[in-house]
Write a protein that binds this DNA or RNA. Sequence first.
DNA 1: ATGTCGGCCTGTCGCCGACAA
DNA 2: TTGTCGGCGACAGGCCGACAT
Lengths: 394, 394
Amino acid sequence: DPAHMDHSTSDSLALEEGRKDINSELWHACAGPLVSLPNVGSYCVYFPQGHSEQVAASLQQDVAAQVSNYHPKLPPQLVCHLHEVILHADLETDEVYCQMTLQPANVQEREPYTALDNSSQSKQPSIFFSKVLTASDTSTHGGFSIPRRAAERVFPPLDFSLQPPAQEIVAKDLHNNDWRFRHIFRGQPKRHLLTTGWSVFVSAKRLMAGDSILFLRNDKNELLLGIRRANRPQTFISSAVLSSDSMHIGVLAAAAHAASTNSRFTVFYNPRASVSDFVVPFPKFEKAVHHTRVSVGMRFRMLFETEESSVRRYMGTVTHIGDLDPVRWPNSPWRSIKVGWDEVNASTRPRRVSLWEVEPLTNFLVYPPPSNWRLRPPWPLPNEFEGSRNPSIW
Amino acid sequence: DPAHMDHSTSDSLALEEGRKDINSELWHACAGPLVSLPNVGSYCVYFPQGHSEQVAASLQQDVAAQVSNYHPKLPPQLVCHLHEVILHADLETDEVYCQMTLQPANVQEREPYTALDNSSQSKQPSIFFSKVLTASDTSTHGGFSIPRRAAERVFPPLDFSLQPPAQEIVAKDLHNNDWRFRHIFRGQPKRHLLTTGWSVFVSAKRLMAGDSILFLRNDKNELLLGIRRANRPQTFISSAVLSSDSMHIGVLAAAAHAASTNSRFTVFYNPRASVSDFVVPFPKFEKAVHHTRVSVGMRFRMLFETEESSVRRYMGTVTHIGDLDPVRWPNSPWRSIKVGWDEVNASTRPRRVSLWEVEPLTNFLVYPPPSNWRLRPPWPLPNEFEGSRNPSIW
DNA sequence: ATGTCGGCCTGTCGCCGACAA
DNA sequence: TTGTCGGCGACAGGCCGACAT
């Protein structure tokens, strides 16, 4: 039983990384096709507002419910050097997240941003499949029904001379635990099934109908498997450690302290809890904010993840431009665009987005920027960055 | 199955409290005999150092591992008005904790402390028993063996005219869920057993050998049951939400912000994670710090909890007096006393304690204080409180 | 192509007293 | 007094093709 592992030593964070590195392909497969992490060594823009939103979302809490009026001296965005990215997976839930070490950077120290245009791609593995688990898959009555194409693409080929054709499948999860399943091709009509070993996996991971499982084969022909839980109404997480106020304050104070001392700070990014990335590659941010003209009525497309973990574009229209939180975060570009969606049934899509999340349809992208663009800057940057700009770049 | 409860609504914190109040007796029984919460409305002393230690302990982290040099302007102790105490129990683990709302108080606003000497007693219920679970208790092979005296004291009396004598037991846990067990008196020799219903309870609560269960009967003759897990090396809790740095910073920044604005702040107190209380009734603190002379070589007694959840006194000697953290928290009374223990096998007892945790054996307690006690104050208070003292009280 | 079901076998759960610590 | 075990009966777990969608 892989659930009974040895975690008795104390400094488990370093330990976990030392003993078993999280497989990057599997991590990205679990994170989904839209998640792309910035490259280590690159410059990023950190949004404390977005970070705070992730904390609120993790706590199942309305972000407006922050009663505390704590607000340190902190600009709505912080250009940072990204020193380190460590992939993680929660030992209890297999939830993927990552730990980023950021250091606020002065503009003077930055190299020309053209050399920094190396935002990483999302690394979705090619040989993989995912399936939303059915009631039959998760019941104790039987095994797991593998979609035919999926089995043929990622599993080793069966020896069809056997009656019935069957083999043992071994797959590693995010914690490098091996899971063994009997893969058999039987029934009338014939179908691929996972039988022996499946139920212990389901109960160990506490899977329920609606959750997803995914298998992938990497270039070394190793099988990996991950899970993605449904967005079921989580049982309220009251950390029992920190009040939600302290958490919000901690996020802001840590960033403010780092900004004032130019020192490193650490954030946890949870791609499935967060609605939007709050650490954005600097070139992506700059192109969107300074080289795109956005106006009410503008048409755009935006990527969303489908249930089958592929991507789909939805179309929308800009309906309003203005601060999400005029009191705490005036002049912030974070989700400053109110939008409407073409489809009527768009309740799951956000009412507000950030400029760098959308693809404008009417192409106002201009290279080089026109000489008069400075007259109407989309959003003023905070004062501390205002005076130190390099005019030849900006 | 009580594990499948409805938690689909959003603001579950208020909801949890509204729908099901935590039973105070049961909470205290689970918290242990040494835990006594300060009274609502009283004045307390809050120690950010101790709070930080609890966070570190919850994270299975050495408190010295705080790399961040963040240190806001914050005295080592903060006299506060205690506005609210809400008892909680973790929905996943049944871990007890509580939420305290504190407001920094000016000394001028304080009433004479003699009127405030109302630190609450620990409310250990009288009719209760606890048992450390054996391997047989937790195995799937059988039920639960009830110690005879325990069964006779807290369970309803059996009808011994039946063959065998048996009844149904219904007991409520901290979340007000009912658990039903068959209580039977059988075997050779005869003994009390819980059979049907026991195994689902064990698996639902994920109990293991070494964990404790406790039953109690309140004055309404209702049966309550709680659990207390063994101090097994916890599987590393990486919250996946906040970096440990941000947590520590959040704790300190929240208190500092509250102190500077005289506003309320909220702390979570976890009696079984914390080694020492970091919210201490003001009279207890003051008596200990200002009316006790402590010196190297002083003999003292101190209470500890036994495995059977009773209390026992251990004897020790003061070996050193000085700051635990001279850099961050100079002149702090928090665990400023280094001690040695009489018993050789004292590895589980702390090397450092706070003055108010011990009972000095050589009785230097003096009422009223001698006129010269001011010449050698044990620890200077922080400056902000220095000027505002009321000399008639101090 | 695959979700759910009835049939049926079998392994584990769980109730019992024996026995010993 | 109570922890662990062998015995054994009952039942849920789990493998199978049928059948429907």
